[in-house]
């Protein structure tokens, strides 16, 4: 059985180490926060906050306290606030240990596309290009194939890039792969999935 959304998020949470400052993207990456357990992880929200807390209780929403997805959130005892220039200074400056984010395509060189589909309404890259260029480690969490069954792990990205040679690790519903010299290396296979299934669903070169 391939992993579901929550299992993928739980697997991504294993990547995070005690003491890390981490930025989580929108979608499945947001769920990662539910699986960090006892690890001391500080979440960054690029609109200007370290130490992001959970959603507020009903009636306790604060218009001045949102995350990068514009959702109302809460603060923690460790929280600090800062302006957008300072926020991206810590991102670009390599102070954020890791970013977990979704993707449309990743290729065997570690190129990432997740912001634009030509001909479809363009919304903008937000902070994604800064994050992938700046953080210590980029972990992509996404389905292995798109809704047409086509591989999202390609030899070469076809969509406009978010960053070039930026991805370190890819966690999909089928398993975990690293970007290494010459292609992608299978690190882990989801329980009940075979290596042949991963290979059949991967267009990118797989190295042993």
């Amino acid at each position: 059985m391939p992993w579901d959304r929550n299992q993928m998020a739980a697997r991504a949470a294993q990547e995070l180490e005690d003491g890390m400052y981490v930025n989580l993207g929108i979608g499945i990456p947001t769920l990662v926060a539910n699986y960090v357990g006892d690890k001391d992880i500080t979440l960054q929200s690029e609109n200007g906050m370290l130490g992001m807390g959970p959603f507020p209780f009903e009636g306790e929403e604060d218009a001045d306290l949102i995350n990068a997805g514009k959702q109302t959130i809460t603060e923690l005892s460790r929280t600090s606030y800062f302006d957008s220039a300072t926020s991206f200074a810590m991102i670009r400056g390599g102070k954020i240990a890791a970013a977990v984010l979704g993707a449309m395509e990743v290729d065997e060189e570690g190129d990432l596309a997740n912001w634009m589909i030509p001909g479809v309404l363009v919304k903008g890259m937000g902070g994604a290009m800064d994050l992938v260029a700046g953080v210590g480690r980029v972990i992509v969490v996404m389905d292995h194939t798109n809704k047409h069954g086509k591989s999202k792990l390609l030899k070469k990205c076809t969509l406009p890039l978010t960053g070039k040679k930026v991805v370190n690790r890819i966690i999909t519903n089928l398993g975990v792969l690293d970007v290494v010299d010459g292609g992608l290396k299978i690190i882990e296979i989801a329980e009940g999935v075979t290596e042949d299934e991963i290979r059949a669903s991967t267009e990118a070169n797989i190295v042993n």
Binding site: E46, S84, A85, F88, I91, R92, M129, D130, G134
Partner: peptide, 24 residues
Amino acid sequence: PQGTLAERMRAGGAGIPGFYTKTG
């Protein structure tokens, strides 16, 4: 890119007409 926009404003305010970044 969001961080580039923020830094472009910060730089302008600080009298810095240009800067190099790896973003993008």
